[in-house]
Design a protein around this nucleic acid. Structure first.
Lengths: 225, 225
DNA sequence: TTGATCGTTCGATCGCCACCGAATTGTGTG
DNA sequence: CACACAATTCGGTGGCGATCGAACGATCAA
């Protein structure tokens, strides 16, 4: 099988709505059982089982058995990156008459692996760049000296030693870059620890707590309506 | 239509081998006619026309009319990036008994948009990092002071002003990063101007000229077999 | 052991779509 | 104008795969 036909067969796996739902449900890095994934995909358990077998065969998913449960997760970060890049091409909904509530929550703030995306992620990125704390280009970025001091005070300084901390990650809903990489992970973790944001049960969306509303405004001058 | 189903429909477009061939044939940025793409996809012109209509509708391709010819090209670099990321997941052929000649050429050296990939791209990246000219992490990278001097002497220094020059781009055939971004583009252009590499007519593969064999060995200590 | 839950396998149905050839439209050439 | 060529449209065919329900094996709790 040639490289191209193998690529096509991988893409075909993403091309089914049920499998696409399964994969996106796993994008936050959690491992879910077959039954939970059946619910996420909105198809019967038997159908889901078939999909999971194909995805595991293709090594898009890894599986771990625990008792009578089988936990599925993305086989590698590469898979998540692929999904985001396809989402970036698919682009945002072209002006829906009425925005879907769940989708709206995802657009406001969500996790992209270990960092923040959505409007919050983009706003945070804008705030840091405008303040001169980080310098971003379309294909890289770094923290300024002043930025290091700020991040240290904020409590989100990533491990030292390496000089490159951040990588822009194109946001599929905002179509603008947000901070990923180690800096993105450190920022997200700090916001969680401060209680500014909270993960939701069955979604990659995160909610901004009242404390977070105040904090983001005071520290970053961010006010998401 | 939800975000996920839109992603699925985009992925489904890549999931057909004929369309996958069409898209990869356009990955070097050239614009090709419907007939040429029919040949690349190995299906009839009528079938190709249908595929091209769907790809254009979905805005994966852009089309430009010139006389009685219609030239198709990728609608944006995002599309190319998506294809590379799917290839990275699809991974290299698991040890074929006999390597396909064309595929082998692609693995040796090819263009990935504006920079070099394949064994040559990876070897170049290794040489620059081992010499301490660039510092790469998995999500970013930059040129050292010593590296700036070296690149200036080599004639491949990218435009100054911005501090971040390079971005690692995962190689789908080697599964290792190579240098992309502005530095990658500058390196590829310099190698072309030096006559070390030459583009091939109908492929993204590039050939290493005799001058290139000598040059890569003398300057970077690279010797591909 | 019995019952309950999780997950897979099997068989059958059904719809979608890739494909081709022939006919058609549009454009440049002799 | 007649002809050649590029590209699309149309009608018909065929096959792949998504789906479900029912039955079955596996595991844990009582």
């Amino acid at each position: 099988m040639s490289d191209i036909t193998r690529m096509a067969s991988v893409a075909a796996l993403l091309g089914d709505p049920a499998r696409a739902n399964i994969l996106t449900a796993l994008m936050d890095g959690r491992a879910l059982t077959a039954k939970e994934l059946a619910f996420a995909a909105r198809v019967s358990p038997s159908t889901t089982s078939g999909h999971l077998a194909r995805l595991t065969d293709a090594e898009l998913l890894a599986v771990e058995q625990q008792g009578r449960h089988r936990y599925f997760r993305l086989a590698s970060p590469l898979v998540g990156h692929m999904l985001e890049s396809v989402m970036a091409v698919a682009g945002p909904e072209p002006r829906p008459a009425v925005a879907w509530k769940g989708g709206e929550a995802l657009r406001t703030a969500r996790t992209c692996y270990d960092h923040l995306a959505g409007r919050l992620g983009v706003a945070l990125t804008d705030a840091l760049t405008h303040a001169g704390h980080v310098a971003l280009t379309h294909d890289g970025g770094e923290v300024t000296d002043q930025g290091h001091a700020f991040l240290h005070a904020f409590g989100a300084e990533p491990a030292a030693g390496k000089r490159v901390f951040c990588r822009p990650c194109l946001d599929w809903s905002e179509r603008r870059p947000h901070i990923a990489g180690r800096l993105g992970a450190a920022l997200a973790e700090r916001c969680l620890n401060l209680g500014w944001i909270a993960r939701q049960r069955d979604s990659r969306a995160v909610t901004i707590t009242p404390a977070g509303t105040d904090g983001f405004r005071a520290t970053f001058d961010i006010d998401l309506h």
